[in-house]
Nucleic acid binder design. Sequence first.
DNA 1: TGAATGACAAATT
DNA 2: TAATTTGCCATTC
Length: 103
Amino acid sequence: MDEVDSFQHRVWQIVAAIPEGKVATYGDIARLAGSARAARQVGGVLRRLPKGSKLPWYRVINRTGQISLQGDDLFRQRDALEREGIEVSDDGRLSLEKYRWQP
DNA sequence: TGAATGACAAATT
DNA sequence: TAATTTGCCATTC
């Protein structure tokens, strides 16, 4: 099914590299993974992530600086971010300029 | 093997 | 300026 060089595997590595207290956009990760236009697939990878995964998936947001998830997951992500010292508004928005991770 | 899907993003209207 | 529509592309059915 997959080689170690699969897109999914690269996404895992990149997401795992996001420092605490910082966030990255789907587009950024796609670009770092080698496919600048595959932002959507980044979300796809995180969506099928096992529940017990240690990957900081909550540090990934969309380009508007807002959480793309909905429902309970939205609140879970918001809490996880605030726990790292990131200020998130009630609707799941934060300051990209302030918290964006730039390697 | 082919069609459908989607945790986005940029271009149009 | 805000709301819709169209492209993108790896993965899933």
